[in-house]
Design a protein around this nucleic acid. Structure first.
Lengths: 345, 345
DNA sequence: CTGAAAGCGCTTACAG
DNA sequence: CTGAAAGCGCTTACAG
C-alpha cells in the first residue's frame, strides 16, 4: 500500500544530515540526543510527512499496539449483537485511550485452528475472548492463555483454571431474580438455563437453586432445562415443560432471547404473561424494555464489562508477570411488567 | 509477544537441510520447487509448529490481509449501534471469507489527524468509512481516497467526488414513504431531516420533495427542519414546529431515533400517534418493531450494505486501477401502526 | 551526544 | 530445481 513517495527514516537522515540511528532516537524521544538535533529531525520529519512503518518497528519490538478480539457470532447466543455492540464500544474507548487499536479476527481461510498461532501471525499484544457455544471449551485455547495476555468476557469454560475474566455477578443476580419470584408467591419455577459449559450459565442455575433453598423450596432438576441461549430452543422447551409438569407459575430464563421464545410458547399454549405466568429474563437487551409486556430482567452492565476487560488486559500487557484477575460486575434486577404484581397468597 | 521457542524460517531450513529461500518458496506454494522438497519442508514446518511472521512478510509484500474500519461512534447518529452491529457482522463475514481480518481504528493518542497516515501506520490494505457528523466533511479524508482503496457506507459528504460508496436508495425510499402518507390523506407533512452534509440525509429530503411535487403539493421549506439524527434535537424541533405551524398531520423522520423523539414530543403536546398525527421513520431498528406504536419505517438492508461495501473494497484491493463504484441498495417501506389507516377524505 | 553495524524474519531477483 | 545475497524499514547494543 505504500506509495513510492513516502519518506522513510533514511530520507530524514539524509535531509537532516545526521545518521539513521540518531533519527530513530530523536523520533522515539530518547534523552541522549542533543535538543537541537532532536528538533531538527522532528522538523524534517514533519516536512517530509514522515510516517513510521509499524511493520518494521513491530518486527523488532514485538509490539503492535493492537489488541485482538475473537468473538463468536452465533445468532441467539448469550452474546447477541446488541450485547456485542456495547462491548466493542467500551473496548474501543478504553483501549483507544491507552493508545491501542483493535483487531477483529475474521479470516476464515487460515490453515490453523490454533488461537495462539493466529494471534502471533497478526502480532497482537493481547486478546479478548468473547466466545459462544462449543468454542468456549476448545482445548486449543489453553496454549493461548499460557503465551499471551488473555481476558475472557463472560465466556469462560469451567474447565479452564487460572484465566483472567470479567463476568456479571451471575449467581447473586440470578438469586435476586428468583427471590423476586418467590416473594410474588411463586414456588414452582421453570429454569430455562443456557448451556452446561459456560461458567455464566452455570452460575445462573446455581443462583436459582440457592434462592429456592434459602426459602426452603425443593429443587426439582426436571424443572431445569437447557436452551443453549436460543430463542427457538427455548420455545420448544417451554412447550414441553408445561405439557409435562402441572402447576408451574413462573419462568426464569438465562437470557432475554430465551425469555422471548418462552413467552411466545406460553401464548401459543393459551397462557397470558404476566396474568397466568410470570417471566424473568437475563441481559436487559434494548428491545426488552419495549417488549410487550415490558420484560422484567437482570440488567448486565455491558459497557462496564468491556471497559473492565480492556483495563485488565492493558495491565497484563504492561506487566508480563501480572497475577490472574477476575472481575465480577454487579448486575441488578429491573422490575417491569412481565411478572405482574402477584402477591403471596 | 513472540516466545523464544517459536520456530522461524531458518529453523525449518536447518531441520530440513535446505536453504531459507527454498523454504520460503515451498511455504508459499511456488511451482519451482520439487514436489518432494516441498513436502519435506511442509512436514518440518508442521512439526516445528511454524508460524509465519506477518510483520516481516508485510514489510516486504506491503500486504497485511487486513482491512481497516473507521467508525464514528456518536450516539444517536444515523449509525447507531444496532446499525453498526449488523455492518460489522457482514463485513466480518465477507472479508473473512476472502481471507482478511478487520482492524478497527481506536487509538486516540495518535499525533496525526491524517487518515492516510493512520492507515499507513497500521498497514491496512484498504479501508471502510462509516462516519458521522462533521467527520464526513473532513478535508483530511481526501488524500485517503487518493492513496488507498476506500469505500464509504452511507456517510459520504456531497463535497467529495469520485469516491466509492454504498448507500440505501434513499431518494426512492423516502419518496415511497411520503407517498404512503399522501395516500393516507396527509398534505402538510413535517420533514425531520438529518443534517445538511451527508448525501444520505440530503437524498431523503429530496425524496420528500419529489413525492410532494408529484402529487401537486407545495413544498414549504419551513416544514423541513434539521435534527442531526439526534433524538433530543428531534424532540425540540417537533415541539417547536407544532407550535409554529397549524395543520401538520404527519411527520416523516430521517431516522427512527428521531422518530422516537418526535413521538415523545407529540405525546407531551397531547397529540396521539397515530390517531392525531402519523409518523414514519427511517432505518428500521430492532426496537422499532416493538415500539408502541410499532413504527412504520423504511427498512435499510444493513447486512447487505456491509457485505456490498466489503465486496467492492476487496475488488479494489485486488485491482488497483479499478473504477469508482457506487452501489445503491434497495430500501423499502415497512407499514406498521404509527400511521394508522387514515384514508383520504 | 552521534554513528556504523548487526539484525528482526521474511521475500525476491539472480546466478547456477 | 536450489541457494547465496540483498533488502524491506526500523531499533538496539556498542564504540567512539
Amino acid at each position: 500500500m505504500r506509495d513510492r513517495t513516502m519518506a522513510n527514516i533514511r530520507d530524514i537522515a539524509k535531509a537532516a544530515g545526521v545518521s539513521v540511528s540518531t533519527v530513530s532516537k530523536a523520533l522515539n524521544g530518547y534523552s541522549d540526543v542533543k535538543k537541537k538535533t532532536r528538533e531538527l529531525v522532528l522538523n524534517v520529519a514533519k516536512e517530509l510527512d514522515y510516517l513510521p512503518n509499524v511493520m518494521a518497528r513491530g518486527l523488532i519490538t514485538k509490539k503492535s499496539n493492537t489488541i485482538g478480539i475473537f468473538f463468536g457470532d452465533q445468532q441467539n447466543s448469550g452474546f447477541d449483537y446488541p450485547f456485542f455492540s456495547d462491548l466493542i464500544r467500551s473496548i474501543k474507548d478504553t483501549a483507544g485511550a491507552a493508545g491501542y487499536d483493535i483487531l477483529i479476527f475474521a479470516n476464515q481461510k487460515r490453515s490453523t485452528s490454533s488461537y495462539k498461532t493466529i494471534c502471533y501471525e497478526k502480532g497482537v499484544d493481547g486478546v479478548i475472548l468473547i466466545l459462544t457455544g462449543d468454542q468456549r471449551a476448545d482445548e486449543n485455547i489453553r496454549e493461548l492463555h499460557e503465551s499471551l495476555p488473555t481476558v475472557y468476557i463472560d465466556s469462560v469454560s469451567h474447565k479452564f483454571n487460572n484465566v483472567n475474566f470479567v463476568e456479571s455477578d451471575n449467581l447473586t443476580a440470578a438469586a435476586e431474580a428468583v427471590e423476586h419470584l418467590i416473594q410474588l408467591g411463586h414456588t414452582k419455577i421453570l429454569k430455562l438455563a443456557g448451556d452446561d459449559v459456560a461458567k455464566a450459565s452455570y452460575d445462573r442455575v446455581e443462583g436459582y437453586k440457592k434462592a429456592l433453598q434459602k426459602h426452603g423450596l425443593e429443587v426439582n432438576n426436571d424443572l431445569i432445562v437447557y436452551g443453549e441461549f436460543s430463542k427457538e430452543k427455548a420455545y420448544q422447551l417451554t412447550k414441553r415443560a408445561f405439557s409435562k409438569h402441572n402447576g408451574i407459575t413462573a419462568v426464569f430464563s438465562s437470557s432475554d432471547m430465551m425469555a422471548f421464545g418462552a413467552i411466545e410458547a406460553l401464548r401459543d399454549l393459551g397462557l397470558r404473561v404476566p396474568e397466568d405466568i410470570a417471566v424473568v429474563g437475563f441481559d436487559d437487551l434494548d428491545q426488552s424494555r419495549l417488549f410487550d409486556p415490558p420484560l422484567t430482567t437482570v440488567h448486565q452492565q455491558r459497557y462496564k464489562m468491556g471497559e473492565t476487560a480492556a483495563k485488565i488486559l492493558l495491565q497484563l500487557i504492561d506487566n508480563e508477570n501480572g497475577i490472574t484477575q477476575n472481575a465480577r460486575i454487579p448486575a441488578s434486577l429491573i422490575i417491569r411488567e412481565s411478572c405482574g404484581m402477584k402477591r403471596r397468597n
